[in-house]
Design a protein around this nucleic acid. Sequence first.
DNA 1: AATGAATGAGAATTCATTCAT
DNA 2: CATGAATGAATTCTCATTCAT
Lengths: 197, 197, 197, 197
Amino acid sequence: MPENRLDRIHAAACAAFLKKGYGGTKMEDIAASVGVGRSALYASFPTKEALFRGLVTNLVEHALPLERILQGIEAQTLPEVLGDLIARLTLAMSKGAGPVLHRLIIAEGAQFPELGRAYRKGVLQPLVTTVEGLLELGVRRGEFTAPDTRLAAQHIAGAMIMTVLWPRVFDPRASKAKVLEAANALAGMLLYGVLKR
Amino acid sequence: MPENRLDRIHAAACAAFLKKGYGGTKMEDIAASVGVGRSALYASFPTKEALFRGLVTNLVEHALPLERILQGIEAQTLPEVLGDLIARLTLAMSKGAGPVLHRLIIAEGAQFPELGRAYRKGVLQPLVTTVEGLLELGVRRGEFTAPDTRLAAQHIAGAMIMTVLWPRVFDPRASKAKVLEAANALAGMLLYGVLKR
Amino acid sequence: MPENRLDRIHAAACAAFLKKGYGGTKMEDIAASVGVGRSALYASFPTKEALFRGLVTNLVEHALPLERILQGIEAQTLPEVLGDLIARLTLAMSKGAGPVLHRLIIAEGAQFPELGRAYRKGVLQPLVTTVEGLLELGVRRGEFTAPDTRLAAQHIAGAMIMTVLWPRVFDPRASKAKVLEAANALAGMLLYGVLKR
Amino acid sequence: MPENRLDRIHAAACAAFLKKGYGGTKMEDIAASVGVGRSALYASFPTKEALFRGLVTNLVEHALPLERILQGIEAQTLPEVLGDLIARLTLAMSKGAGPVLHRLIIAEGAQFPELGRAYRKGVLQPLVTTVEGLLELGVRRGEFTAPDTRLAAQHIAGAMIMTVLWPRVFDPRASKAKVLEAANALAGMLLYGVLKR
DNA sequence: AATGAATGAGAATTCATTCAT
DNA sequence: CATGAATGAATTCTCATTCAT
């Protein structure tokens, strides 16, 4: 069960890095959390840095279940599709280790440029591109309005990430039950705005 | 010119902490940037932690020029007031050391809980409360629609912060000239949504 | 074939210690070279140190085939006997693990004093004493000249060891074929000097 | 007095590396010997390895006072010149940190290939080449006899180094007063051999 | 016997901090 | 005041050694 081992280390490291950041996390923190000695970690990872990189890379790969979400969407009209996408994706990204990734990238991206690149390529770009695609289609059909679809897509993506981040970073006491509600509210606001029609 | 000294240290520390985070920044980085020796910093600050706290506290105090922005708003109708607030505040927060603060809090907030509290109290709460106030008023007047004004205000605040953060964190190559454009686009989207009326 | 095992470990250790020294050699290096796991070595040796000591002790015992060489000498005159001894012994010591021993003693002797003692007692002393004996006899017979036979014997012994060491330590690219030639040349020089008669 | 500092560290390191070898020497050994804390060493050298390399490189540069010795020789005849060279150079190399270098190279040369190269280029080659030059000249003049001058020069160089090494490595109790005597005896033996004329 | 996993005692290195000058 | 040198507490990483299987 080497996979098991790796996963347990990843989980422990995830929690530790989330709480203390890369520099603030000691190998001992992780080891203790896994329940082994410091040196046992080095059987699985050559370096603290390698452990961190591996973890983040792993997180990047699972951060954006775009395919799965897209396939799960049953809505027909374009606005409903976009709304569903925003709501479901935000919800999905809030699960599990999702929020950790965004926090780590914001915190440590500058020190690990290639992780920043991986994140942009694996998470940001697909998300923005997908949203932008929907917006463009909608604009062409006359259903959406957006002076700059690229910018709008960035704002939507950013808002989604912020929604994922919020309870973890800005509101530690927030009940997790509200995540679904928040995701839906976000979708509504981004689609309809706050202005009454 | 002791203020001068303090300010120069703050500026240097700001840049250093932004790039490397708290743990990754060495006193020497800051000292070298100021152009003095390591030990000279200790004439102004007793510890690295104190320097960091002082810096962040300082940033918190100037992060949200709410009064100034509110006074500058000339719009009359409520929607215009909210739109102006969003756009102008986002723009203002993008200036100078603004983006640094949010990044530092996201990165190090968990390790310095009282800085997180100060940020929430000094930045997040006023912002959310102000926006929420406008929303409530608008909802009561029948001009706005929002199932949960608190949540909506959080989303708006989050989107603003994310807009401030984006060029620094997620898009290092972005031209800074687009900040104004981005702020306006954000205001538009949050007010009207992407759905064509 | 426990002997076989021991020998294989010794051979592997020999090569490893030669290349990296005692401190620089990891048990894993040896184990990998033997083709077993680290822990398997501990079935044969209680500690790395014991392994090293055993190896060196073993090398000391076989380093100086004095008896065999002496018996093989067919020369009659004293000078010829000494010349033969120098040449044959130098050649013999150059074979197999011979050079390793001298290098290890020079390198690690200070850290393992009793190995130094064993080497002096088992290699240096017999060699010096034998040579000195021949010199004394020759001096008494008027065939040799040496103001201080002890010193002369030391120099001869030293030169022999250096000749053994040279290709391994100072001239890694030297062809091994020249060992015989070098041994003979050494014998000639020590007997006759470089001065033309 | 930064030079002073460097020199003191070099001296302490010299003694430590001599006694324990590279691997066996702890930074603390050196630091304690200098009378400072471990970390103080890192102000002068970035790494233990750098310290070692610097030391050895330094030793190489001063190991062979060939010019000085050659200028000091007053002998006229070729044999006397060679004898003087051997005796004086051996004596000079026995002084100070001289013996350390040879021991370190024999011990650690394989692990630091470029130090081995530096030693060969800076010490071995000049020595062998100089001696070979004298031998060739003498052979041409009919004063020396040597079937292979290169080999003979190597043997002479090797014997000199071994003479330098002997009291430190093989005979820790040897009185240092005998160094002069040993050097002269070596010169005599290499010139005249042990065979009575 | 052999192995893979684990351990723990170090060792090198870093860095905030102090202090004599 | 500012500085350069020094410190010592941490921290990462290594490796001989042990042990259950």
